[in-house]
């Protein structure tokens, strides 16, 4: 045993203490509150998505002729395929929900403020990646709804001034949805976006480690000395508990509400009701309210504002009296997002 340890130690010059040092960063006490564990949740779900996604890719064939059939094969014939697909589908939903919750927590606790502005922007990139990966993944099934969802999505992209048509062509691999489209979506979904997200995550986490987690003091605690605790095992266990809880929840969702097969995509017949996945309801409702370029541009503008918010917030705090403005703006924003989503969900058209 010691021989093996020595052999390994020579080749991997990493002592036990180095490992402890690397993993056991002390974390502030407030992380013992559950609300502060939301960052680990999307990371855990991301791992689940990678694992199930790789498995699904073993059988998936990204072509118009075979896509639907291969998804059907996974769902109906491959052993446990229905379960893995269910986990992947519900994992996506939960991951997007977790990302949004994490972002809201960071926002409302001011975690993006100096010196962490850059990490907020990295996080915004991760949000956009997550939404895009959700969109491309949904389109891969080649169901009637996902086909038309992708078609509508491409047309929205096309309505962006100047670069719109170019974006659409790039996205679809041609003037319209064709033989090139699915391979493109598949590459984005299974290779480009995950790789990009991993890079962004590394940066995201590295920045957290470099800055340390914001040490928050709640009312009444200000006078107490900081009581940091170890990442491992204490915080790790907390994250593990959340992860396991999520896994059980995923398994339950995948069995109780399994991923099903809608009708196969038919380019010749547009369905009565086209709806994207729930996380695009906001944008979809918005597009219906302000048709065309205006809506697209306004969504782009909102995204841009979110992206640079740390600097806007700093400016507000510096040059106005409204130090708490971000909270009220955040509440207004969250309420309008929820309102638009519920609105879209409640009506047929």
């Amino acid at each position: 045993m010691s021989t093996l340890a020595r052999w390994l130690g020579e080749r991997v010059p990493l002592g036990r203490f180095d490992i402890k040092e690397l993993t056991n960063e002390p974390v502030p006490e407030h992380l013992k509150r559950w609300w502060w564990c939301l960052g680990g949740t999307p990371a855990y779900l991301f791992i689940v998505q990678i694992a199930t996604g790789i498995l699904l890719a073993f059988y998936y064939e990204p072509s118009a002729a075979r896509a639907y059939e291969s998804v059907r094969f996974v769902t109906e014939e491959a052993a446990y395929g229905w379960f893995l697909r269910g986990i992947h589908k519900w994992g996506a939903t939960l991951m997007i929900a977790a990302v949004i919750l994490h972002q809201m927590r960071v926002y409302f606790t001011g975690g993006y403020r100096r010196p962490r502005e850059l990490n907020w922007m990295v996080g915004m990139c991760l949000l956009v990646c997550t939404l895009t990966i959700g969109f491309t993944g949904y389109s891969l099934v080649y169901e009637q709804l996902s086909y038309w969802g992708a078609t509508v999505g491409a047309n929205i992209a096309a309505s962006v001034p100047v670069v719109g048509p170019w974006m659409k062509t790039l996205l679809l691999g041609g003037e319209e949805y064709g033989a090139q489209t699915l391979p493109r979506f598949f590459m984005l979904h299974a290779a480009v976006l995950p790789a990009l997200m991993i890079c962004l995550l590394v940066v995201h986490i590295a920045l957290i480690r470099l800055h340390g987690v914001t040490d928050l003091r709640f009312r009444g605690d200000e006078s107490k000395p900081p009581k940091p605790f170890l990442f491992y095992p204490d915080h790790f266990y907390t994250e593990l508990m959340i992860g396991l809880g999520l896994t059980v929840l995923l398994a339950a969702l995948a069995t109780i509400l399994p991923a099903t097969m809608g009708p196969k995509a038919d380019p010749l017949s547009t369905p009565e009701v086209i709806k994207p996945e729930w996380f695009f309801y906001v944008a979809f409702r918005w597009l219906k309210l302000f048709s065309g370029t205006a809506a697209v541009l306004s969504i782009g503008f909102v995204l841009f504002v979110m992206f640079v918010w740390p600097f806007i917030d700093a400016a507000i705090r510096k040059y106005t009296r409204f130090a708490e403005a971000s909270v009220w703006i955040g509440i207004a924003g969250a309420l309008s997002i929820i309102g638009l989503t519920v609105w879209e969900a409640a009506v047929a058209h």
Binding site: Y237, T247, V248
Partner: peptide, 8 residues
């Protein structure tokens, strides 16, 4: 926590 993790 250990007990909770085992249970989960």
């Amino acid at each position: 926590k250990r007990i909770v993790i085992a249970t989960l």
